[in-house]
Design a protein around this nucleic acid. Structure first.
Lengths: 346, 346
DNA sequence: CTGTTAGCGCTTTCAC
DNA sequence: GTGAAAGCGCTAACAG
């Protein structure tokens, strides 16, 4: 990665490095006309490319934003990533990407790596787990983040505050009203259905999943419906599929009124739908189904999924911008319930 | 982004910076036992985090890999990104992300930014355009890449070589056999269908699209079928939808034998399917449909899409690894044709 | 407006 | 094994 240096350019142009710097990388003072010309010519002829590392060292500002997601290939995260990337580009920053599968230990490592690279802010997306086995790692993650903030870093959190974070300075949370939306969703669906109700949830302790489950139960109660039974599975398409297989079996062995299935997110809902279909069951005829997130790439599925619509890209933008603006209190996004065919609407 | 420095740690531990460095960041020489202890303690108590910028400057090696995609939210690119990220993590590198919408000018800017940050390699994914209006920008992009390579950078290219690149040193291409697979796909589909055939292609000059179109036409010829007519639209879901609307109108106004539609990629195929459905047409009953790529998130669609399966994640891995290994000739991936319900199979 | 002089934080010969 | 000193490439006072 050798390349010509500012000094070489300066020598070639017959000026001092300082002057060359002023010409090449914007400075307050505008250098003389003829000089500027010579410097630029020299730079071009040498194929000079400023060394951002050196600039960062000298100015102590890197223009870097770190993004932490569970899995960049998951459409939920990639939508957020697009928002982050957009905001970053707008503010002339570059984004560093880390994927962690949601493992707190890996997230801690990612934060450390970003801190080492002196990223100016870190956006961390993806549900946290309060589960026992993650407790120790969560504490370390929180400590790492706190240290990062204490050193002047800013962190943008998507969804809910990081478990165990003590300080508030430096943190900017984009609150996703999972519980409220889930409640609204379940209320709306509950009005049209008798039940029984089933929730396909993620692992216990996964905050996002827990929030949504709680909201759904409350929404059902609001509508005067019985509480839902809960089926737990991994928080992804295949988890949904597993749960769907189990549910299909239940329906087979125990026929009764048409059940209503709430999946903790769209991707799980798609898995559930696939499993039901594989077992000869149809949505919404044999079971109503609702998701959460309203993932863009899943909107062409049929039956179209009733879901809670989240402006994912906007969420990514807000989380990023929030860390870049000094003002910026915690942002709350709205979201809305979208009724579609999978629950008999439309 | 201030933080304690090595010098501070060293002072606290009562040793020289050199020694502290040797302890904290692996060096050939192993420092004394007790000393090491003291240094580590000092570092911990100060919350020391090595400054990667400074290390990069001193060692001239950044551990950075730049990734350029059209759109990180597109499942095609996010799958590749996952592969890149995996490989990077495996080799203890971090990835810098840039999205460009496929605009050569933006891609040039991204390469320049990566070069400035002294990324050790750049992986560039996404079809190039040979279209006239992009010609100038393409040349500049190629020049920027060449310069980057001349300075010791390595670039991994997904799909086809970058238009206009002259040098070969430093480049590592992962060849995607678009034409061959398209030919096989069309051959297989053509065997079972009489036609007429329609290709929903991207804009003319988009290399990937052009390659696939050519392959499809050859495959049809192989099967003794008439050439397909070509409908052009933007290379995404909405482009597919537009084309689908047009095709549906054609079918309405001009009933005849069931047409077979080849979309240039899965995402377009989904758009076509949505448009046909909106117009009361069913796949495969009223039209057969095939895509390309076999995007993971689209596999649960029904009717399941006949397509050419590409190991996207693997492609990302190979492109990345190729730039990191000195040997590594150009890699070619296999891919395969996958027949599903959308063309009447299964 | 331009050049000189110090560093930014770390690594790395080179002596001791 | 440990420390002193030079330097990676650039910017920012400060003089001139």
């Amino acid at each position: 990665m050798a390349a010509s240096t500012l000094a070489e350019v300066a020598k070639l142009a017959g000026v001092s490095p300082a002057t060359a710097s002023r010409v090449l990388n914007g400075s307050a003072r505008t250098p003389g006309a003829g000089i500027a010309e010579r410097v630029r010519a020299a730079a071009a002829s040498l194929g000079y490319v400023a060394n951002a590392q050196a600039q960062a060292l000298a100015t102590s500002s890197t223009g870097l934003i770190g993004l932490i997601v569970h899995d960049i290939a998951d459409p939920y995260f990639s939508a957020i990533a697009r928002g982050v990337q957009d905001a970053a580009r707008e503010r002339r920053r570059m984004v560093l990407l880390a994927t962690t599968d949601g493992t707190p230990a890996d997230e801690k490592a990612a934060v450390a790596a970003f801190a080492a690279r002196r990223a100016e802010s870190i956006v961390i997306a993806g549900s946290r787990s309060t589960h026992g086995e993650d407790a120790a790692a969560n504490i370390e993650l929180a400590a790492e983040l706190d240290r990062y903030c204490r050193n002047g870093g800013r962190v943008g959190v998507v969804g809910q505050p990081v478990v165990g974070v003590t300080e508030t300075a430096g943190y900017h949370t984009v609150v996703v009203p999972n519980e409220r939306l889930a409640r609204e969703l379940a209320g709306a669906v509950g009005r049209d259905h008798e039940g029984p109700f089933i929730i396909v949830a993620g692992p216990q302790g996964l905050v996002t999943s827990d929030d949504r489950v709680r909201g759904i139960q409350r929404g059902l109660a609001d509508a005067g419906r019985p509480a839902a039974t809960i089926v737990r599975a991994p928080f992804g398409r295949n988890g949904g599929f597993e749960a769907g297989v189990e549910i299909a079996r239940g329906i087979r062995e125990n026929p009764g009124p048409r059940p209503v299935i709430f999946a903790a997110n769209d991707v799980m809902a798609i898995g559930v739908a696939a499993a039901l279909r594989d077992n000869g069951l149809r949505v919404p005829r044999d079971a109503a189904l609702a998701g959460f997130d309203d993932i863009e790439w899943l909107r062409d599925f049929r039956p179209a999924l009733t879901t809670a619509t989240l402006p994912l890209e906007e969420i990514g933008r807000l989380a990023t911008l929030g860390t870049l603006n000094d003002d910026a209190g915690p942002a709350t996004i709205a979201g809305s319930v979208t009724m579609r065919r999978s629950t008999g609407a439309g």
